[in-house]
Design a protein around this nucleic acid. Structure first.
Lengths: 118, 118
DNA sequence: CAGAATCCCTGGGGATACTG
DNA sequence: CAGTATCCCCAGGGATTCTG
């Protein structure tokens, strides 16, 4: 009984945590952005528009701001001739790598099973 | 060079796979539904509305249909007095567990770090 | 180059009520 | 109970243009 209550409690905690995580990472581009930064290291605004493939500046700007608010990326301005800005993963963002890896793995499996069905 | 091209190619594959996975699991409730089914085993429609907490029948119905289309859940009708319907995870859906677990883990960490900041 | 400003628009999601 | 039928709404996204 004690055990059961404890389990219930932790499950609720986990349910809430799950919702939080989904909320943080929700959006059409955030996870792809994180993965790009992980693979390529710090990238500039323009690079991200290219790498992400098809995202418009306004939307990218929005996504980046949200990611920065949640401490998942850092923004640094470089004093170059025309000003450039670099975005990089924070250490904290490394915690999201397992999520991304799991998603990629699942996606690959899914593509494989789909292909075998056709 | 050969190696680099190969890496690029697999990265593109992975990028696409990632997009697919995100697409499949996108939605405000899908992942929570999957987790509930995983924890509790097969559940009926009504149960899912309760467990998910606040989802309306129309939306639940929509989410379930999409999940079924993607072979992540199965729908079975039981010949009971008033008809009942059970939803269960497919074997295939088990592949999503790492994703869910990773999300929960991240969510818990996030809550911890947030709490420590306040 | 890095973005802000504007305008637009679809659909995901919700509230409510109804049916078999 | 297990949904469908309607109606509704706004926020997430997008296209385009403009500025420092």
């Amino acid at each position: 009984m004690k055990k059961l209550q404890c389990d219930l409690k932790t499950n609720i905690q986990r349910q809430l945590a799950l919702k939080d995580a989904i909320e943080l990472l929700s959006g059409k581009w955030k996870i792809s952005i994180l993965r790009s930064l992980y693979l390529s290291g710090p990238l500039r605004f323009k690079d991200l528009t290219v790498v992400s493939g098809g995202i418009t500046p306004k939307v990218l700007s929005s996504e980046l701001q949200q990611l920065e608010e949640n401490m998942l990326i850092s923004r640094t301005v470089n004093n170059t001739k025309p000003v450039t800005v670099s975005y990089a993963l924070t250490n904290y963002a490394l915690e999201t790598l397992p999520v991304i890896e799991a998603l990629v793995k699942f996606g690959l499996q899914h593509r494989a099973t789909i292909k075998s069905k056709i």
